[in-house]
């Protein structure tokens, strides 16, 4: 018993894993945003709408020009 009292018990540290987790509050960033891809139908719809807009513009300009 007397022998043991002289030697300090060694602290046991686990060799793997995190020892201390310091929980510090900080401001929260918003995450980066992946942009959803466009579905085939959506692309086709947009293409058709652009085409129609182009036609409408052509027609309105062709009807407007004779009056002028």
């Amino acid at each position: 018993m007397s022998k043991n009292t002289n030697t300090e018990p060694k602290p046991l540290f686990p060799k793997t894993g995190q020892l201390i987790i310091e929980d510090s509050q900080d401001l929260l960033m918003c995450k980066p945003r992946l942009i959803p891809l466009k579905s085939y139908t959506l692309e086709k719809l947009e293409k058709m709408q652009q085409e129609v807009q182009r036609l409408q513009k052509e027609q309105s300009s062709s009807t407007a020009s004779p009056q002028n």
Binding site: K31, R33, L34, P36, L37, K38, T41
Partner: peptide, 19 residues
């Protein structure tokens, strides 16, 4: 996941219904 401006979580693809 982050949300879109209407409050739904972001998904992988945009369909006319989700857009």
């Amino acid at each position: 996941r982050p949300r879109t401006s209407t409050g739904r979580p972001i998904t992988g693809i945009n369909r006319p219904g989700t857009q």
